[in-house]
């Protein structure tokens, strides 16, 4: 279970006048729960998930995963905490010039020594798991391709494998579908949902596409200007709540789209 309490992030100066990206956010994500984080651009979605694995250093607040503190620890403890959190990126963030296999195995870097990683001598169990994962996401036989030879959907599948081979308790997913076409987006979201269910994984998914979030995710948290303004099931997203998250707009089409998909 992930617990976030009193999380505040202020960019720029250390005194009170800096830009507040997050203000006093409290969230708990129980084991196995898939949570979507929605909100307008600049609401702090990306900052929030980067605070969880401290790619962005929180200004205040405490974060713990399964009771182990992530904040206020030294470099070694932080790396240990990061091993328990897989991260998936909008632009995939694969190492373009490395092979698919090297990209997947890089998810084990927190577990192996520098020289083993440098010589690409990963434990047999890791390699076997990498093959299993590639098979699971439909990338069998692609292990020796270079990442820059892949299509967007294939890259995101490799990104998912890299996150899963960490054997994480939590996935941090930053706009997984924003660079993909609608069909591939749905396939990737479905794959994520299935994999989280198979492994009883918790996940925080930043997502722009409200309809896609409603379609796949049982819990939605709305962020506006760094504060949580909505937390509930997809059915709770009414024109009023969407206005509270994004501001005034005609929301009927968005909600009708969801009902059409259901019917």
């Amino acid at each position: 279970m992930l617990t976030i309490s009193g999380l505040t992030k202020r960019y720029g100066s250390k005194n009170a006048v800096g830009d507040l990206a997050l203000t006093n956010v409290d969230l708990t994500v129980p084991k196995g729960q898939l949570m979507a984080l929605i909100g307008p651009s600049g609401a702090g979605k990306s900052t929030l998930i980067r605070c969880v694995n401290r790619l962005v250093e929180p200004t205040e607040g405490r974060i713990a995963l399964d009771g182990v503190a992530v904040t206020g620890t030294g470099a070694t403890a932080l790396r240990r905490a990061r091993r328990r959190m897989g991260m998936i990126f909008q632009e995939y963030a694969l190492i373009e010039r490395l092979t698919v296999m090297e990209n997947v195995l890089s998810g084990r870097l927190g577990y192996v020594s520098f020289f083993a990683a440098w010589a690409r001598r990963f434990p047999r169990a890791d390699v076997a798991e990498a093959f299993r994962l590639l098979d699971r996401v439909g990338m069998r036989g692609m292990e020796d391709k270079r990442a820059d030879e892949l299509s967007g959907g294939q890259r995101q599948r490799v990104g998912i494998c890299r996150a899963l081979i960490q054997n994480p308790a939590l996935l941090l997913v930053d706009e997984p579908t924003a660079s993909l076409d609608p069909k591939t987006s749905r396939q990737i979201m479905r794959l994520l949902v299935e994999l989280c269910a198979e492994r009883n994984l918790a996940a925080i998914v930043n997502i722009h596409d409200v309809a896609l979030a409603q379609m796949f995710v049982p819990r939605i948290v709305g962020l506006r200007a760094g504060r949580v303004v909505f937390d509930g099931p997809p059915e709770g997203l009414t024109p009023e709540t969407l206005t509270a998250i994004y501001g005034e707009e005609d929301w009927t089409a968005t909600i009708r789209a969801l009902e059409d998909d259901d019917g």
Binding site: N53, L55, R79, R80, A81, R82, R83, M85, M87, F89, E91, A93, L94, I95, E96, R97, L98, E102, S106, G107, R108, L109, G110, Y111, F114, A117, W118, G159, R162, Q166, L172
Partner: peptide, 25 residues
């Protein structure tokens, strides 16, 4: 920078980040 971020996020140490995220680029 996102490739560096991705490798750091796996729990890699600084020299592993150099070897995996910087060197190939």
């Amino acid at each position: 920078a996102s490739q560096v971020e991705a490798i750091r996020a796996t729990g890699a140490g600084p020299f592993q980040v150099l070897n995996y995220a910087v060197q190939p680029q």
